[in-house]
Write a protein that binds this DNA or RNA. Structure first.
Length: 198
DNA sequence: GTCCTGATCCTCT
DNA sequence: GAGGATCAGGACG
């Protein structure tokens, strides 16, 4: 089956991202992340996100702009991809108006399209182990450092509106951080088996 | 320049 | 549940 983008959904416009970061993080649940490459198309439904706010000690931008985090201060709707723990990458969506250093970390996807590519890239058999973590979904989707700063409102990497969901959104504290660990800025779809952690 | 830490994941016990 | 892989950014001097 071929992913029929125009028939299934429309690409989220820049205005979607140019809003309060917490609202963007919540509203991204149920949206579809798509990556079109020469090898084929991979796509997944976003089921878990985290908001990183300016003034929030866990946010890379909390101490001002640097070479690494400058994309976060740029126009919304772009990708912020950074290298972590010597071996992994994490994928974020820049939110809020230009000049504000905020972003939404995509933590988990429900695989939809290009499962075979994901299986090959991840070297894992189980569907639930393909995209249930920020570094895992980056691997499965074929996202690399070169995607840092790319515009997500157009091909080859973009986010489309998903079908309207009635699933309950659960709010918890964020995973894997020390500073700002008590802030309720993680969101996921209740009872979804593709999230990274309960 | 050195030192330490980290928005992680995997393997082993 | 613990520890290792492996490196860039940031703090410090």
């Amino acid at each position: 089956m071929v992913w029929n983008m125009s028939a299934e959904f429309e690409i989220l416009p820049r205005a979607f991202y140019c809003r309060d970061t917490v609202a963007v993080a919540r509203d991204l649940l149920g949206a579809i992340l798509v990556h079109e490459t020469a090898a084929g198309v991979t796509a997944g439904r976003i089921v878990e996100t985290e908001a990183y706010l300016q003034g929030d000690p866990a946010c890379h931008a909390s101490r001002g702009m640097t070479r690494r985090n400058r994309v976060m201060f740029g126009p919304p709707g772009h990708a912020y991809v950074y290298f972590i723990y010597g071996m992994y990458y994490c994928f974020n969506v820049v939110s809020a108006p230009e000049g504000v250093g905020e972003a939404v970390l995509i933590r988990a996807l429900e695989p939809i399209e290009g499962i075979l590519h994901m299986l090959r890239r991840r070297k894992r058999e189980k569907l639930t182990e393909l995209c249930n973590g920020p570094a895992k979904l980056v691997q499965a989707m074929g996202i690399t450092r070169s995607h840092n700063g790319v515009d997500l409102t157009g091909k080859p990497l973009y986010i489309g509106m998903g079908k309207k969901t009635t699933e309950t959104v659960v709010t918890t504290t964020r995973i894997g951080i020390r500073a700002g660990a008590d802030l309720p800025l993680r969101f996921y779809l209740k009872n979804n088996k593709f999230i990274s952690k309960k």
